[in-house]
């Protein structure tokens, strides 16, 4: 089971589920990180935390401690089609 925290910069994954509940999870979901969404991990901040991801066509930053609660999976074959978020740019 991999969490978003462990994903290397430059990789794209899809959201599987959230661990824990409450305001933080709701906030992450409100920002568009729902199940099946593809997330492109864009970079890690210069001091090693937080991380920047591309989701639903915009850039979002979150701390590694927050990314740890998001279980992710490798992108399925029909990458990003479901949400069409686009894997971002290279």
């Amino acid at each position: 089971m991999r969490t978003l925290k462990e994903v290397q910069a430059g990789d794209t994954v899809t959201v599987v589920k959230f661990m824990g509940a409450g305001p933080l999870r709701r906030r992450l979901m409100d920002m568009g990180l729902t199940r099946g969404t593809s997330v492109y991990v864009r970079k890690v901040a210069p001091l090693g935390d937080p991380i920047e991801v591309r989701v639903r066509g915009y850039e979002l930053s979150l701390r590694k401690s927050e990314a740890e609660g998001i279980v992710v999976d490798a992108v399925p074959a029909e990458a990003g089609q479901q949400t069409g978020a686009g894997e971002g740019s290279r």
């Binding site: 305001p23 933080l24 937080p50 915009y58």
Partner: peptide, 9 residues
């Protein structure tokens, strides 16, 4: 407080 923040273009 959580740091879930949009980075606007």
């Amino acid at each position: 407080a959580p740091f879930v923040m949009e980075l606007p273009p």
